[in-house]
Design a protein around this nucleic acid. Structure first.
Lengths: 208, 208
DNA sequence: CATGTTTTAAAACGCTTGTTTAAACTGACT
DNA sequence: AGTCAGTTTAAACAAGCGTTTTAAAACATG
């Protein structure tokens, strides 16, 4: 495996675990078993390394996501919100074959991107991958036309928060569930649990 | 105002803005206009300062929250989930008279506590303020008895995620809402928007 | 006023951070 | 063999970090 990819893999798992601020280049390079200077040689800076880690996932995920959402929009009949959200399942779970723990790593990184680094990653996503968001809004609008664009805006961000947060603590939650309820769940089960929740949330009656 | 309180106030707003990891003691003391060494003199360490900032809010909030939830449990008739979640509104908004921007600062800090510092604050909350969580579970169970304890567990964590995440990026979201929809919202408006969402999410039909 | 304690002040501590330098190595192509 | 771009290495850099030290100032108590 190339030095570049060793760095990306090590950075990914450390970033997901401890955040961008909380991970030093020296931790990354020693986990990757490469020289410290290799990061700046191959990526230029830590900030560019962060972007590269995220791009590797987004470039894989975005086309699948857009395609799945376009399918829903092109379909003649009106979709349910459950169907809209379910469009995310297969592309997200396919990240697990793309990379070990890909799904949960990516979702954790997504959460970090929103809270760490004062939102420079939020800018990165919305400018680099606008198609995902706009197609998602279109699909929701088709499913629930009474919802105003403003209300969609808010509820989509609430949904983003729910999913990202649930997934970033999914390891801890699955452990608790195993202890308290004797249920052995995996990331796919958690996704199945969160979909009815967010679908109902987006479909909530509008508060006057 | 005392040096101690000047430090607490400065730390609070910087922590909310840039996270615990992302804020240095030098930033705090220069905003507070006190000497750098004052932090370690009054608080012992940065970690203890973080705890103090959080305790100042939790000590104010927890009794009000527990009382409001106990009211609901003691009431003879069955509450709606909207009523359960609305029990949080007044205690949360009262933080605004307790301190400027108290509500949003506190909720942002809560979000930081879950994602920064690898969950040592999560331990802090659950061990120091267990009454809030248990009373919340009781109130939800009274409102929606068909929900199994396991499903309550998952949905309460989803709710936690929604609220914490929404609030920790509420500043950015309110800015976008102002630009895109020409609406000037404050933290109380965001709370009003999130309640129907989480109430509907918790009330979602159970997936078989 | 004198005393002992609490609080502030400036400076330095040792350490870690991201980044840069310059030399050494690697593997092809003429 | 010799050249040369591409890559890796060890070492150092300046800057920032949390914390500690030392001494002066402020304070309250007798």
């Amino acid at each position: 495996m190339s030095t570049k990819n060793k760095i990306l893999d090590a950075a990914e798992s450390l970033f997901a675990d401890k955040g961008f601020n909380g991970t030093s280049l020296r931790e990354i390079t020693s986990l990757a078993e490469v020289n410290l200077a290799a990061v700046n040689y191959h990526f230029g800076s830590k900030k560019e390394l962060i972007k590269s880690v995220m791009s590797r996932y987004m470039d894989e995920l975005a086309p699948n996501l857009v395609a799945a959402l376009e399918d829903i929009c092109d379909h003649p009949e009106q979709p349910t919100l459950i169907e809209v959200f379910s469009a995310f399942i297969e592309p997200l779970l396919s990240l697990n074959v793309f990379r070990q723990n890909g799904t949960s790593n990516f979702l954790q990184l997504l959460g970090r991107g929103y809270t760490d680094s004062q939102g420079f990653l939020r800018w990165f996503f919305t400018t680099q991958y606008p198609g995902v968001i706009s197609n998602f809004v279109l699909a929701v609008q088709k499913s629930y036309p009474e919802l105003t664009p403003e209300e969609i805006f808010w509820r989509l961000h609430f949904t983003m928060g729910t999913v990202v947060f649930a997934m970033s603590s999914s390891d801890a939650l699955m452990d608790i569930a195993k202890n308290d309820f004797d249920k052995n769940l995996d990331i796919a089960d958690v996704i199945q649990k969160v979909i009815p929740y967010v679908a109902a949330g987006v479909a909530a009656p509008i508060n006057k």
